[in-house]
Design a protein around this nucleic acid. Structure first.
Lengths: 175, 175
DNA sequence: GGATCGTCCTAACGGTGTTAGACGTTCCTA
DNA sequence: TAGGAACGTCTAACACCGTTAGGACGATCC
């Protein structure tokens, strides 16, 4: 429903209708609307977490190619779904910030990504953060300026290559 | 008011109170609440546009130093003010997207920045877009993970340096 | 067989953006 | 100088939102 009508446009009465209930009955299952968003936030990051083994199982051996693949993997997950991107990476819901429990999968994912990147490239923590910001920034730009398009997928590879050059990764055969 | 109580928490009745009116009277001046956000959006970008001459007047001659200065200038403008950042760079207001007239200053600023960067560095358009995404991504990270802190100012310089290396800018004396 | 629990309901509350319609003031014009 | 349009503000009220209160109903369990 969030995907079709918008994450913030979601209404408790709509949700209740969808599951054959009245809005107040939802409060027997969730403490508040924010609690629903909380569960959605946790689920979105858990869903992404579940895709990581696939990614890491088929990770290219060349560090630079691998970094491109990791970035593209996350990009594809969030750039194709505005609602999911807003939920995971932006704070578009009025007074909502995730609970620490809901935050846990996202923390795990980021820590795991950090370890993976360091193991792969030997980059310093600060450089990994720059890489995260770069990927996030490009996803933002995509949704703001070219939602549905594919221009920013090219920019993503270019950005990752810049970063790879900066941390001293050797070129691969795609360059 | 947006700065103190939050951009989306802003209420027409609050705004009306502040100017000694009742909420419906605002509709004699603005067509809707979104029209107010529209005016704020335009004003924020116009305000930033007004600071550009100061920046470009004192622009360092070294391209790399200049790129750092430009990035820091925009960063300082939006990273210190969450409401302004949400207004200018994110879409946190429910059904709101700026009108084309309100969008004009932001388009002017970005086109001008683009020309300046190309003149300064000779970078390709795609690379300029990567630079924009990088700066925006770091501002996002700042507000999400370190609002009020200064960790990301350092990362900004580091990111710009990565980019400068990639487009072939010579080192300056800060490296 | 009766108490308990869980689940759902209707009714309603306070708050939101917004509209309708009335009122007084200002200011131009016949 | 009188009449009237235009303007700006008001109160009252609407529809919608998240949320709470309180009760009806069935299944479960002692």
């Amino acid at each position: 429903m969030a995907r079709s009508k918008g994450l913030v446009e979601l209404t408790l009465r709509d949700v209740a209708d969808r599951v054959g209930m009245r809005a107040p009955s939802l409060y027997g299952h969730f403490a508040s609307k924010h609690a629903i968003y909380d569960a959605m936030f946790e689920q979105a990051w858990s869903d992404y977490e579940a895709t990581i083994p696939d990614l890491e199982g088929a990770l290219p051996s060349h560090p630079r190619t691998a970094m491109r693949a990791i970035a593209a993997h996350f990009y594809d997950f969030t750039a194709t779904d505005l609602a999911r991107h807003q939920l995971m990476n932006q704070s578009v819901i009025a007074g909502f910030s995730p609970s620490s429990e809901a935050y846990a999968p996202s923390v795990r994912v980021l820590e795991r990504a950090h370890r993976t990147v360091v193991a792969l490239t030997g980059a310093r923590t600060e450089d990994v953060e720059v890489w995260v910001a770069l990927v996030g920034g490009l996803i933002n730009q995509h949704h703001a300026n070219d939602a549905g398009g594919s221009r920013h997928r090219v920019l993503l590879d270019r950005g990752v290559d810049m970063w790879a050059d900066a941390v001293g990764l050797p070129p691969d055969d795609q360059q």
